[in-house]
Nucleic acid binder design. Structure first.
Length: 137
DNA sequence: GCCAACGTTGGC
DNA sequence: GCCAACGTTGGC
């Protein structure tokens, strides 16, 4: 089982939208590093859902329901998409500030590679954030 | 709204 | 293959 983090601007597609839709195709990624992460996602992997710009916090956990397939929004085989479904909304959202001020999380890509939109999360970091969110899976 | 960080593009 | 120019992301 691997853990990930995806970013979305809540103005364009928020956690609540995902929850309402029951599933969504995570398409439109046009960055090779992010694309490579998408390709590594396995069904059942858990994915932190981060709101960039507005909120700047992790609000929920999604789950990979379909592994990488050609991105339906572009006619170019280089790009892929996955399908995500909502798993659980965090009891308490975990803000970027919380993460930055937690010494255990200082190595997170969210802090170090702030522009990467699909990131890998280590198991330790996943558990730490889960704890900060008061959420039990 | 600004700007730093970074990725991509294209001329040479 | 280098690098300048440009575009985008996202925190502040």
């Amino acid at each position: 089982m691997n853990y990930w983090l995806v970013k979305s601007e809540p103005d364009s597609y928020s956690w609540d939208d995902l929850f309402k839709d029951k599933s969504t195709v995570w398409s439109g990624v046009r960055n090779y590093t992010a694309r490579n992460n998408l390709k590594l996602m396995k069904k059942g992997d858990l994915v932190f859902y981060y709101h960039s710009n507005d909120g700047k916090d992790i609000v929920g956990i999604a789950e990979v329901s379909k592994e990488a397939f050609p991105d339906p929004t572009i006619k170019d085989e280089r790009w892929v998409a996955v399908e995500l479904i909502p798993n659980v909304k965090l009891k308490k959202s975990v803000s970027l500030e919380d993460i930055k001020s937690n010494k255990h999380l200082s190595e997170m890509e969210l802090v170090k590679l702030s522009r990467l939109s699909v990131q890998k999360v280590s198991e330790g970091d996943f558990k730490t954030i889960l704890m900060l969110s008061d959420t039990v899976l």
